[in-house]
Every structure is written in C-alpha cells, then in structure tokens.
Design a protein around this nucleic acid. Structure first.
Length: 421
RNA sequence: GGAGGCGUGGCAGAGUGGUCGAUUGCACCUGUCUUGAAAACAGGAGUCCUCGUAAGGGGACCGUGAGUUCGAAUCUCACCGCCUCCGCCA
C-alpha cells in the first residue's frame, strides 16, 4: 500500500510504475474515488459536529420541555448522520480495495521488460563446471542412488509429491545447519515461524488479494504460506519499534506451500518445482531511508553469495525487469545457479526491497530521532530453499562419472562423508 | 466439547448512559533547585483523518464489527483473543 497523499501528488509516477510492471491500474479512477471519499467524509463530519453540539445542550436544559424539544429536534439530524456515515463506509470499502492494488514504484535502475527473459545480468561468479562424461540431471542421479522417490511421493502426496531419502536427507540437514550458523554469525536472529496463517497476515505482505490461487486454504479460512517472509514480517505488525533496534534482522525457518497454479507444464520432473519445501529466509526491517534499503539489499544478497562461493557453485545475479516485479517490490535481484543438465542458470534465491509498502499494510512503525512516527522499510531474501532449489544444483554440479556426488568441502563436517550415494 | 470471567493510552489500573480522549501511579519530556546527577516541586505530553499559510477549528479511536439511544468506554448481539474450571486426547 502506498500513501494516498503520495499518490495524489504523483499520479504520473504511479502510471509509469504500472506501465513498467506491466500491470493495469486506473490511477485516475482512484483519484476520482478519493475525491468522492473526501467530500463524503467532510459532509459527515460537518453534520456530526452539529449533532455533537446540540447533544451537549440536552443535559444542560433548564426544564423538561426544553429537553424534550431538543431531543425531538435531534431525531432528523440523527437520520442524516446515519445516512452520511453509511455513504462514507460504502465509498471507503471500495477505496480500500483499490488502494490494495496500487503498484509500488520500481527503482530507476530497474530495467524495462515484460518477463524474466528480459532480466539483466548484474554479475557472475565462477565458471561452468566441465565434465568428461555425459552429464545427468538431478532426478536421474538421485533416483539411481536412492536419494529421492517420486513414484511413492506421487502415490502418497499427489502431483509433485516426493520423498527425500538417505544421503539427500543428510545433505538437507547439513545445508540448514551450515547456512544457519553462517547467518547467525552475522547477527541475524533465528526464528521458527508459522506457515499456517490468517488471511490478514497474507494481506500484510501483499500475497492477498493478488496471488490467492497460488495459496492453499483451510476450512477455517486460514492459508498455508508460500514463504516464511509472511509470518516474519507480521511478527511486528501493529507495533512501534525503537529506532535504536533497527535494523531488525531475522532468519526464519518454515515449511513453504505453493499450489504452483498455472505452471503445470513447467519443471514437471524433479525437485525444482514442488508443492511443499523448506526455507530459511532473511527478513529485515530498517529505518525509512532509501539509502538504508539499498545498502541492506546488497548486504542480504552478499550474504548468500558468500555461501554459494564457499560451496563452489557457479552463479550469476540478475536485476529483475519491471514486468518480473511483484506489486510491492521496488527492486529485485534473482540469484541463479548454473544447472549443467539444462545448460542454463536457474533461480535459487530472490532478494527484494519494498520501502514502506508492506509495513504500511502491517502497521509497523518506529519513532525517529525527532520523535515522529514513521513506517519502517522492509526487505527479504532467501537464505536457502531445500530441497527444491539448492539440492538439484549441488547434485548436478558435483556429480562424478560413477554417479556419486562429491560433497563440497564446507559441508563435510556436517555430513561426515566425502561422497553422496 | 461444556461452564464462567476478562479485553481501557508505553505499562499498571480507575471508570456501568451526558462536562470522559478518559481519574491515578510508574515510565517519558521541559523547567526550577544542584558543580553534575538523584530527590523534591511546577508544567507538558496519545494516534489517525480533515479544514487552514498559520494560530487554531472539526471528526474518529476504550479488542473487532453491527445495534439500541438525542447521546455509548459504559447497554444488546456476533466475532476475535486471553484466563480459570470440567471433559476429551496424550
């Protein structure tokens, strides 16, 4: 959500933002509605003030007759007040729905483009691994060494179901431990957060009303979140933080559930796109400054790069183009790791900042140095998503001629062996 | 699942139909006093919206939403949350 004052003062900016994000949004309709809302509000408040003034006379009435007359006089005013208040409510409901759809303004450095195909490469690390044997994909490698079972996964859990098995399980636990220790050492506070959350919580982070079809819903009208970001952001909702506590840095662990609606034809084999996985997520709240957001955005990106480099995975970072940004995102980097079987990079991490788009919805404020209440800024980035993103990458990049998987050195202490399978 | 109780400002805690946006205490800010601090004393201070260049005016907010009333923190209903007891499960 953006500030209505900002929208009123910068309608052209919002129009440009919608165009850059390839979203249709009628700014003029919102401004017209805002005008209507303001008029209705003024009309209501004027008549309400009159009612309050006359009501105050009643207890001061010198006799019963004066009192009775005053009450009679107020009856029609009461009806007018109710009618005007009803109008305000009706308009405000419509207004709120529209306000939830206003796109946040992308940063000037965000490239133009309609889809992920137009994302720009920002930097590259490492080189493509070379193999002197035919490269296999992670599905084939893992099934051959009994590290995953998709057949039984589908039998038990349906489409995209899987069982992770044996050495792949050891690898997953090793990754959690390795990534968690590294990020805690950088001052991030670890949290295990709910995945089952209320509707309101999802509105706060902007996954509702957009994106409803990608969420699992319960019979109690709760939802299963697709990322720990949702619960973690909401952790401080309706709170006033102290400026000295900022930035707040969290690493949240949670199961993640995604319906993957509309992507039935994509990645149908393997672990890359599954309905249920686990994620360690970096979530940051900082003071309301663009410079602070930018600096922390680089920081949460670098945090991941250091770990990918330590693992020895060839990756690049892309700046997502306007059409590949979510409604609330100002700027986003996707970190993509090289997948030998596909001969291309695949997204493993996604780092975004939002300015106050999320915190305005969640009502997360802090008192600045002047004692003024301000909405904090928010950011997030994957730390590691398992098994879905990182395990296929490790399996494929470290495959050996005999089908075993070489364990990256930094993970050996957590796995206790040199090869998987 | 059954029964009862509770939800007020940063915190504690008054307030059961009108002058209550709300007594009081703690915490907070500003003065006086002090070399400085503490203590004491005096004063100040909520959030959001709206009109206004400003001074200032108006409106809303006592868990949320409806309702009764000329008027609701206070009465009624629903929902949400918390607590206690019983049952159930472990």
């Amino acid at each position: 959500m953006l500030d209505i004052k900002f929208i009123k003062e910068n309608p052209e900016l919002i129009k440009a933002a919608a165009a850059k994000k390839h979203i249709t949004f009628d700014v003029d309709a919102l401004l017209a509605l805002e005008e209507k809302r303001r008029e209705a509000l003024t009309a209501f408040e004027t008549i309400r003030a009159e009612q309050n003034r006359l009501s105050d006379e009643i207890p001061k009435a010198p006799d019963v007759e004066t009192r009775t007359k005053l009450i009679e006089d107020l009856k029609p005013i009461k009806e007018e007040v109710q009618a005007k208040e009803e109008l305000v409510k009706t308009i405000t409901r419509e207004w709120q729905l529209m306000m939830l759809q206003v796109p946040n303004v992308p940063d000037i450095s965000v490239p133009e483009g309609a889809s992920d195909e137009e994302n720009l490469e920002y930097r590259v690390w490492g080189e493509q691994p070379t193999f002197d044997f035919p490269v296999k994909d992670h599905t084939e490698l893992m099934e051959a060494r009994d590290m995953v079972d998709f057949d039984r996964g589908t039998k038990v859990a349906g489409f995209r179901g899987y069982f992770l098995k044996n050495d792949a399980v050891l690898l997953q636990f090793a990754l959690w431990q390795y990534f968690m220790q590294a990020i805690v050492a950088k001052g991030f506070a670890p949290l295990v957060v709910p995945s089952l959350v209320t509707k309101n919580t999802l509105y706060g982070t902007g996954y509702l009303p957009q994106g409803e079809e990608d969420l699992y819903k319960t019979q109690d009208d709760d939802y299963l979140a697709g990322t720990g970001e949702v619960a973690t952001m909401s952790y401080h909702s309706d709170e006033v933080l102290s400026v000295s506590d900022l930035p707040k840095k969290y690493v949240a662990f949670s199961p993640c559930f995604r319906r993957e609606a509309g992507s039935h034809g994509k990645d149908v084999k393997g672990l890359i796109r599954v309905h249920e996985f686990y994620k360690l997520e970096q979530v940051v709240l900082c003071e309301a400054s663009h410079e602070a957001s930018v600096a922390l955005h680089e920081e949460i990106t670098t945090n991941v790069e250091e770990l990918l480099q330590a693992l020895g995975l060839h990756y690049h970072i892309v700046v997502n183009c306007g059409g590949d940004l979510g409604l609330g995102q100002v700027k986003k980097y996707d970190i993509e790791v090289w997948m030998p079987s596909q001969g291309k990079f695949r997204e493993t991490h996604s780092a975004s900042y939002f300015h106050d788009f999320q915190t305005r919805r969640l009502n997360i404020r802090y008192k600045d140095a002047e004692g003024k209440l301000r909405y904090a800024h928010s950011l997030n980035n994957t730390l590691v998503a398992t098994p879905s993103r990182i395990i296929p990458a490790i399996i494929e990049n470290f495959q050996q001629a005999d089908g075993r998987i070489k364990v990256p050195d930094v993970l050996k202490p957590y796995i206790g062996k040199d090869y998987l399978g």
